[in-house]
Amino acid sequence: MAQAARKASTRKARTSPPQDEREPALFPVIGIGASAGGIAALQKFFPEVPADSGFAYVVIQHLHAEHESVLASIIQRSTAIETQTAAEGMEVEPDKIYVIPPGVSVTIQGQRFHMAKMAATRVKRTPIDDFFTSLAQEQSEQAAGLILSGTGSDGTIGLRAIKEHGGLTLAQAGAEYDGMMRSAVQSGMIDMV
């Protein structure tokens, strides 16, 4: 009996797809990129989101690497959805909001977060592009990218990847700081503003 179980287990292990060929999660994962003015936009956005949408939300906010972030607690005050700071290896689950910690570049693979310390401050940092690009590869049509208030162009390359993999791309209308939104819209890759 034990030998038969071992054979079945070995056969199952051989037929499991490699981690990079796994199916996307059965629920949508929404990446939300923000910078200057983003906290106010997030405080307006999340009260409108149903607590049982079945989606996972990942917030990538440009934050100074040296400062501890209280963004998760700020968002939690405006929503009933469980909000927490993402950590290395944490599994992404539906009906939760994850906030990316400062000073790291985060990707998603195998429905888990993976973090790498960001390069020196003189190098242009693009944490939104980094996450959106990995989200597109992981989730395909089950991915969505949303750009909120912010300056610069971070997020535009990642939105292109999401669009090319069949996902949904959105940008905030009337953003307090509209640089990131304008860059995204001018790319021609936005489904809805």
Results as ranks from 00 to 15, higher is better:
M1N: 11
A36P: 03
G188D: 03
E88A: 10
G152Y: 00
A65C: 13
E21V: 14
A143M: 10
V185F: 02
E68Y: 04
P94Q: 09
K96D: 01
I81L: 07
Q172P: 08
A116C: 05
F46D: 01
M192P: 00
M180G: 05
S69K: 09
R14T: 10
Q61N: 06
E82L: 13
P50Q: 12
S140L: 06
L63S: 07
P18S: 13
H67E: 07
P18M: 06
A34M: 09
V106L: 13
T151E: 04
H64D: 13
P24K: 12
T151G: 09
Y98F: 15
A72D: 11
A119L: 13
P50G: 03
G188L: 05
Q61S: 08
A40F: 07
V58N: 01
Q142W: 04
A143W: 09
G33V: 13
A116T: 15
M192I: 08
Q19W: 08
A184K: 02
V49W: 11
K7D: 04
S153P: 01
Q43W: 02
G179I: 02
P127I: 11
V123G: 01
F55N: 08
D129E: 06
A56C: 11
S35Q: 11
V99E: 03
R6Y: 14
Q111W: 12
G54P: 11
I75R: 04
R125H: 14
R122S: 14
M181E: 05
T107N: 06
G166C: 05
I147Q: 01
A171G: 09
A41Y: 07
T107Y: 04
R182Y: 00
V185R: 10
Y177I: 03
P47C: 09
D20L: 15
M189W: 03
I162V: 08
G33K: 07
M1F: 06
Y57Q: 05
G145D: 00
F113D: 01
R6K: 15
T151A: 13
E88Y: 07
T85I: 14
V49K: 04
K7R: 15
S16W: 14
I75Y: 03
I81Q: 03
P94D: 02
E141R: 12
L170H: 04
G174W: 07
V59I: 13
P47Y: 14
M1A: 15
G110Q: 10
K7S: 11
G37K: 00
A144M: 14
Q172D: 08
H114M: 06
I81K: 00
A161S: 11
A175N: 09
A40P: 04
A36V: 10
Q137S: 11
E21N: 12
M1I: 08
G103F: 04
A143H: 09
S140R: 05
M189C: 09
P94E: 04
S153R: 15
E66G: 15
G166Q: 05
R77D: 10
S53V: 12
D154L: 06
A136T: 06
G31I: 14
G158S: 06
E68S: 12
Q139W: 07
T79F: 10
Q111H: 15
T10W: 06
V123D: 00
E91D: 11
T15M: 13
G145K: 03
E88T: 07
M192S: 09
V70D: 01
D191G: 09
G174C: 04
S69W: 03
E138V: 12
T169Y: 13
L135W: 01
A87I: 08
E138F: 07
A25I: 08
S183W: 01
A13R: 14
R112L: 00
S73W: 03
I39F: 15
G33N: 09
G167E: 00
Q172L: 11
G150M: 05
